[in-house]
Amino acid sequence: MGHTDQIIPLNWYLVLSTFLFCIGVMGVLFRRNAIIMLMCIEIMLNAVNLLLVSFSAYSGNSDGQVFVFFIMVVAAAEVAVGLALMMSIYRNIGSTDIDVLNKLKW
């Protein structure tokens, strides 16, 4: 990225990560399979990670990268617990369809 004509503007990363985040939001609204919804939450987390890394790289401050590291830690823990919950739900109701899980709805 040394030459001036080859520099990637920060706005491109903004647009890319916004688009990825919106794809994740659309997936959560669009699908009924809870495992796919967990994947879409991962896409949203990755969009935010990409934005943090790009701001960190462009401002010359490595705090953002440390934050991304911690977000990865939390995402790994979240996926482990979430998939364990999915296993337990599938064992009890025999489906991963979230519309079947309406006992707490009023």
Binding site: M1, I7, L10, F55, A57, S59, S62, Q65
Partner: peptide
């Protein structure tokens, strides 16, 4: 302020 990325060893 964030127009040009400085060549850094931050990462």
């Amino acid at each position: 302020t964030f127009s040009f990325p400085p060549p850094s060893t931050n990462g």
